[in-house]
Simulated scan of single mutants.
Amino acid sequence: MKTLNRRQLCGWLAFLLLLPFSSCDLFDYHPYEGNVTYKNLTAENVARIKALESTFPAQATLKFAFISDTHNFFEEKEAMVKDINSRNVAFVLHGGDITNYGFTDEFERSHRVLSKLNAPYVTVIGNHDCLGDGDKIYQAMYGPLNHSFTFKNNKFIFLNSNFLEFDASVPDLDYLQRELQAPADITNKFVVAHISPDHGEANPAKAMGYATLMQQFTVGLSLHGHIHGHTVRQPYNDGITYLTTASANKRNYVMVTVTGNTITHEVITF
């Protein structure tokens, strides 16, 4: 069960501080209102990805962009979209923190920018997206908090890792294990979670279980955001690479290239 904690109280406090300005039409409607304009965006974008898969050459190189923590950096987000559109990517993965406070208005404004991408984008929920009723708005707009899709010989697993905003059941390692038990023809696995398991705000009781599953199933890349900076590490010295991409205001993101079973990545500055 989700409980109200320090981060969520801060979100409500920020909203209350903004109330005196509400007469200036700061929000068109209550920012926690669940009546979203856009719905089921994850399913919609995954359907676009699967349609591409049906025409994608069997031995072709796959390229996708990994972005995160776009928050309300709208100017930088527009520039990022423009840069990604100038490159040949199959799709875009978003590592969470689409918003600052989990407001409906923020989610919808962010989507209006991200929908300008030529390629479909798929998200995981970030801790800022959970504030107040943000998790409910996220689910109404995007879909399940944990989800996955496949593309050729690649599987992408999206895992809610926001332990402090939920409870001790997060992240759901049973779900992660089931999804990692992929058919033999899936040779590359990617896990996208906003917070890396060794971070101080991750669930400490599940960190080693998370890492053990990643090593057991030879995950190609563990993809994260949250810290607003780019890092590439192997924190458990087990051969599994944990990559974090920067926030949008740093004006860079990561391009991942997959050729057969070989995975490479580079920072793109825009």
Rank of each mutant, 00 (worst) to 15 (best):
V124H: 00
I125M: 04
N127S: 08
N127C: 08
H128Q: 09
D129V: 04
D129K: 07
D129G: 12
D129I: 07
C130S: 12
G132D: 01
D133M: 12
D135W: 09
K136A: 12
K136G: 07
Y138E: 03
Y138V: 03
Y138W: 13
Q139V: 07
Q139L: 03
A140F: 07
A140Y: 13
M141A: 02
M141W: 02
G143L: 03
P144Y: 12
H147R: 10
H147T: 04
H147W: 11
H147E: 10
S148C: 11
F149Q: 05
T150S: 13
N153D: 14
N153T: 12
K155F: 05
F156V: 13
F156N: 03
F156K: 01
I157S: 00
I157W: 07
F158N: 03
N160R: 03
S161G: 15
S161V: 11
N162F: 03
N162Q: 06
F163T: 08
F163V: 13
L164R: 15
E165M: 12
D167I: 09
S169C: 11
S169M: 09
S169A: 13
V170Q: 00
P171N: 08
D172L: 05
L173I: 09
D174A: 14
Y175C: 13
Y175G: 11
L176H: 00
Q177G: 08
R178I: 10
E179K: 11
L180A: 01
L180E: 05
Q181S: 15
Q181V: 08
Q181T: 15
A182N: 06
A182G: 09
P183F: 08
I186W: 05
I186C: 04
T187D: 05
K189R: 15
F190Q: 01
F190H: 00
V191S: 00
H194R: 10
H194M: 08
I195Q: 02
S196V: 05
P197F: 01
P197E: 12
P197T: 12
H199M: 10
E201K: 14
E201W: 06
A202F: 12
N203Q: 08
N203H: 10
N203K: 06
P204K: 10
P204S: 07
A205P: 01
K206N: 05
K206P: 02
K206S: 09
K206Y: 01
K206W: 04
A207G: 06
M208T: 09
G209D: 04
G209R: 05
G209F: 03
Y210S: 09
Y210C: 07
Y210H: 14
A211T: 01
A211V: 06
A211P: 01
A211S: 14
